[in-house]
């Protein structure tokens, strides 16, 4: 078992790192929204969008190779759109003789466009995650009217993720250490139901530990004056410079989007 809890965050001092988080979050969402509004098949426009994304990635000092590798995460979901190839009516491009399916040209365009959109969106999301700590991100969301209680809950989750993942990891290792196999057998014993049941016990055990910890944490909060209100220092005011910097890529995307719709 592998605990994949590595933050995407890359330490840095680039302009994008230092940009006001509220601006960054808003810009990210607007960029992804523009990508999703792009009409299918406008390959030149897609290329421009990608170029801007690459410029942003480079400006943030994030290794482009790692972004590209990471951006493949959504690829398996392409299976869900695969049927578009054969279900969208249009001039046939390719016959699959044995099953009698026809790949149509508009079908291929739709399919490729969905994949491109997904791929671009992930890259944009990575830029945000790589230049912003989740803690900053969360409180920026507060300025965007995400409920304060929800943000407080998520920051608790983030804090205890590592504690509980560590506990889970140690439990899994203890299970592994006791999973003997008969000589010459690859199996570590038990059928599927039994293995799932052992995992279920571990989940139950982890639940109880988490539940009991939450009680102690509540006491520690109460001991420092917590009475149900979440208090935070107010964020500094938005600077016009940050607003303008954030508006740059958004405007560029919007222009490309408009051009793609009209040309």
């Amino acid at each position: 078992m592998h605990v994949n809890l590595v933050d995407q965050y890359v330490r840095g001092t680039s302009t994008i790192h230092r940009l006001d988080t509220r601006v960054k979050v808003t810009a990210t969402l607007l960029l992804i929204l523009s990508v999703s509004l792009m009409p299918a098949g406008k390959w030149v426009a897609f290329a421009f969008l990608w170029a801007i994304t690459l410029v942003l990635t480079a400006a943030a000092g994030i290794p482009i190779g790692s972004v590209l590798r990471r951006s493949l995460i959504a690829l398996p979901f392409a299976l869900a759109a695969l049927t578009l190839l054969v279900t969208v009516p249009g001039p046939p491009l390719l016959e699959l003789p044995r099953v009698g399916w026809t790949v149509s040209e508009p079908g291929l365009v739709r399919f490729a466009s969905i994949l491109l959109k997904s791929w671009l969106s992930v890259q944009i999301a990575i830029i945000l995650a790589a230049t912003t700590h989740l803690t900053d991100l969360l409180w920026a969301l507060n300025s965007l009217h995400v409920p304060r209680l929800l943000i407080a809950i998520i920051s608790f989750m983030y804090r205890y993720l590592f504690v509980l993942a560590g506990e889970g990891f140690r439990m899994a290792r203890a299970r592994q250490a006791r999973s003997a196999a008969p000589a010459g057998s690859q199996s570590t014993g038990g059928n599927l139901a039994w293995r799932a049941r052992v995992t279920g016990w571990m989940v139950g055990q982890l639940f109880l530990r988490s539940y009991e910890r939450s009680e102690r944490v509540y006491q520690a909060m109460a001991a420092r004056g917590y009475r149900g209100q979440i208090r935070r220092l107010d964020p500094p005011p938005l600077s016009p410079r940050d607003l303008m910097l954030g508006a740059l890529p958004v405007t560029a995307y919007a222009v490309i989007l408009a051009a793609a719709n009209w040309c």
Partner: peptide, 13 residues
């Protein structure tokens, strides 16, 4: 009041 397990005491990120 300082609790025994600092993971209980330090609950912020």
């Amino acid at each position: 009041l300082v609790f025994q397990d600092p993971d209980d005491q330090l609950f912020s990120p």
